[in-house]
Design a binder for these strands. Structure first.
Lengths: 133, 133
DNA sequence: GCGTGATTACTCGGATACAAGATGTCCGAGTTTGAGCGG
DNA sequence: CCGCTCAAACTCGGACATCTTGTATCCGAGTAATCACGC
């Protein structure tokens, strides 16, 4: 039970994109250099974010990735869900009871964490956060 | 990022043990049959719980496992930490900044979940829970 | 009846096998921009 | 000056390769209770 590196890459990339000038596409090469990770692997991660509708890609020269929605709206939870999936962290119950009390506790615990991550926006940790004052 | 099956087994076993008569040792065979899992694998999981000081084992005939502490005291978090480890779910930061804002957010989120799991005791989901009224 | 040894029913730990998922690479295909060139 | 072509700079997607981790099994060793047997 650990967050994957992919999630780490995705979060850093998203914060990076949030800090960029609006509507400006950033190439995957540039992002990969910034964080010293493999461009090809990073592009796979970004593809997931595109499919989740968080960012969009532009093909061709001067292409790259940019935010699809307002930068203030994007939460940590969205990014994490896009990479890790939205399924529950705790799967299956051993007793055939469909109202497993253990499962309910784990769901609730997970909900506590997700609630926090849903309220926390990317811009809260970006250098643009001062603009909110 | 998922809780392992081992955690699932451990939690079910612990709730099962909490429901047993005090100071009575239960064989791993019996527990494994109850949940239809492999006895040998289950014994490895229980070894971790023993090392964590949550339960204790008795060798020989009529041996088995029993709680080491008061049943009311044992929290979900203890069991999970014994199996999954106590390390943070989110590791490493890409920018060499040691005060990585993203990491701080993730730590806090994790803390939200752990707080809930720490307060939640095994007995809260056991059939003995009515005794608390 | 009583000690002693054998048997039985357990746990413990290491070694190993297997499967799945995370991580990372390679390459061909499609797409857009922009430069170069000819009319 | 205009339009065409071509090259360059990108992303996209699938197919792999590799590594780690979770899951599971097997087996020998140790340990404690109980049973059997002989005195």
């Amino acid at each position: 039970m650990k967050f994957s590196k992919a999630t780490n890459y995705a979060l850093h990339t998203m914060v990076y994109l949030v800090q960029q000038e609006a509507n400006k596409s950033i190439g995957v090469q540039q992002i990969a250099e910034t964080f010293s990770v493999s461009p090809t692997y990073l592009s796979k991660i970004l593809t997931k974010l595109v499919k989740a509708g968080i960012i969009e890609s532009a093909s061709g020269a001067n292409g790259g990735y940019r935010l699809r929605r307002k930068r203030e709206e994007i939460s940590f939870l969205e990014v994490i869900h896009a990479i890790e999936g939205v399924n529950s962290l705790f799967t299956g119950c051993l007793n055939n009871n469909d109202q497993c009390a253990i499962q309910r506790v784990m769901f609730e615990a997970e909900g506590q964490m997700e609630h926090y991550l849903k309220e926390k926006k990317l811009i809260d940790v970006s250098v643009h956060s001062e603009m909110k004052i």
